[in-house]
Write a protein that binds this DNA or RNA. Structure first.
Lengths: 191, 191
DNA sequence: CGTTAGTTTGAGAGGACTCAAAGTCTGTGG
DNA sequence: CCACAGACTTTGAGTCCTCTCAAACTAACG
């Protein structure tokens, strides 16, 4: 179950068997049905959830509407960034869009591993850098000024999500109303 | 010159004198006049620049226009994120907006330190997390849908930059034209 | 086959944009 | 110390894109 994750880690830097066993022991596998909230506004995000299978959506409320901030599919990790790192309550929700199998670990366990296994700091640094890059790319998308550009960018970069995510959420993710997105899709289709 | 930086690092986790000396040795202090380009499109970002004094702007070109992606002032670090981590040429520019004193270190030196000093990975991870949080907050700003909201958010969160950065760049940073920003400022002033 | 979630289409309003011009500030040289 | 040049900001007029609200259509699921 965890072998893709361990492969991913080993590709960054090979780790000792001891550390591997420790991780396997601390990572809890959970099965969660569709439409389940893993985190809600006002809570502190204390876990990293790694998606073994399924799809997650993160969002926050803005003037009574859900604003979609991120999708997390297989082998990606979900945290509410600010809440997790600052240990303060956040304003994000994490929800399953599909039935999911997740591997999760508590921040406290993670901190212990950081302290006891220096090698893991190297891994964590690189992973954090990778997610930082994603976050920057996301900004780039949001700054594409026209609605059409943003959707084309989404199509290019997340084609696999197009099939799995309802349009409402994609619209929200790229900062459009559902109606506008629908019109853009029509326009693109006729080309 | 570097003591604020070392204080900052020690606050994350105290480091050995050996590491401190190594860093001091590898960090090069440079003095750069206003309006100097530290990085341009097509180049690979190989250095981290820490601002000792002064102010930097990062931007990229989009349809022949400069789009401002970030400001970096005292004690903050500048890299073109994707280019730096991937070692690929990027599309960002880094420019001094004021005369600057900078401390810089080459990525190769940094990698050596990562490999030889595991403790430094801990520091780097935490710093990366902090910048990751900023990046997420930036996204949050960009998703504020109205022009006025975005400007108010900027005022709240970067009041010190309001004095130092020309409006053109602020407008670009929050995704507006200069004219629109000017009108918003007028509107806000009359309240 | 009915119910609900998801998507498309329509009409009208409004905010931000573009292009253009005028005004204001700042610093340098006479 | 003034005057002028260049950088920066404000104002104006007109247009267009995206939004809102409303309703119809379609697909998925029990």
């Amino acid at each position: 179950m965890l072998s893709p994750l361990f492969n991913f880690i080993s590709n960054i830097k090979p780790i000792s068997n001891e550390l591997k066993e420790l991780l396997a022991q601390k990572l809890e596998i959970i099965e969660v049905p569709k439409k389940t909230l893993l985190l809600r506004e006002g809570q502190t995000c204390n876990h990293i959830h790694v998606v073994v299978s399924g799809l997650l959506r993160m969002y926050y409320m803005k003037d009574g509407e859900e604003v979609c901030s991120r999708f997390i599919d297989e082998s990606l990790m979900a945290i509410s960034v600010k809440s997790f790192y600052s240990r303060q309550p956040g304003d994000e929700y994490i929800e399953t869009l599909e039935p999911c199998i997740l591997a999760r670990i508590h921040k406290d366990e993670l901190e212990l591993i950081y302290k006891e296994h220096d090698e893991f700091n190297y891994i964590a640094r690189v992973i954090t850098e990778q997610y930082f890059i994603r976050s920057e790319e996301r900004q780039y998308l949001l700054r594409k000024q026209s609605a059409e550009e943003r959707y084309l960018y989404f199509m290019d970069n997340y084609p696999h999500l197009l099939q799995r995510v309802p349009l409402t959420y994609i619209a929200s993710y790229i900062g459009l109303t559902l109606e506008t997105l629908s019109r853009i899709r029509k326009k693109i289709a006729t080309k």
